[in-house]
């Protein structure tokens, strides 16, 4: 059976973690890939931890096993640890953090990428679009990442009104450009 490409997204309520999972899901649909997502949060709107799980390819259930994920995207550095146990030993981590930042407990993980997504979002004038810089980085940095830039862009354009979608696209492209 074809293996699935599993992704964990970790962040805090209000950072658009769930929005990011929807963009990924839509882009996957666009490419004809199977997709399931789910999220775990206490009361996400109120600033608590949020984790999203995304399975691309095969899979009937929306959750997967620890050690299965090919990619962990961290929107809030303090949430790194919450997602690490799901990462496979060949997996990659993309963290929203300035260069030189030393995220706690990350040593020994082989593919760690720091992306200053908050800075990119600020440049575009929309703090909440940092999530898309991480996705842009995933598209450009990772071999075997199943999503193409074109389908992500279509998904972004489909999910939001003119101005917001334009800023989201801008930040996504900054993420690709790193």
């Amino acid at each position: 059976m074809p293996a699935s490409y599993d992704i964990v997204l970790a962040g805090r309520g209000g950072q658009g973690v769930i929005f990011l999972s929807r963009i990924i899901g839509k882009a996957a649909l666009e490419q004809g890939l199977g997709v399931r997502t789910t999220e775990t949060h206490g009361m996400a709107m109120r600033g608590g931890s949020v984790q999203c799980f995304v399975r691309l390819g095969s899979g009937l259930g929306p959750l997967f096993r620890e050690g299965a994920a090919s990619l962990l995207m961290v929107l809030h550095p303090a949430e790194t640890a919450s997602g690490l146990s799901f990462l496979s030993d060949k997996g990659h981590v993309i963290i929203n953090a300035p260069p030189g930042f030393d995220p706690p407990g990350i040593r020994g993980i082989h593919g760690v990428h720091l992306v200053d997504a908050d800075l990119m979002a600020r440049k575009a004038g929309d703090n909440r679009s940092a999530n898309l810089a991480l996705l842009g980085a995933a598209v450009s940095l990772l071999d075997g990442f199943p999503l193409e830039a074109r389908s992500v862009e279509r998904a972004i354009s489909d999910s939001g009104s003119g101005e917001a979608a334009r800023k989201n696209l801008e930040v996504f492209r900054m993420g690709i450009g790193i």
Partner: peptide, 23 residues
């Protein structure tokens, strides 16, 4: 074989989830 989590050091330490608060 069953999956192995990436970092054995961190295996059970998932950190304290940040609790929700009133906005």
């Amino acid at each position: 074989p069953p999956c192995e989590p990436g970092s054995p050091v961190l295996e059970k330490d998932k950190g304290q989830p940040s609790p929700p608060t009133l906005c």
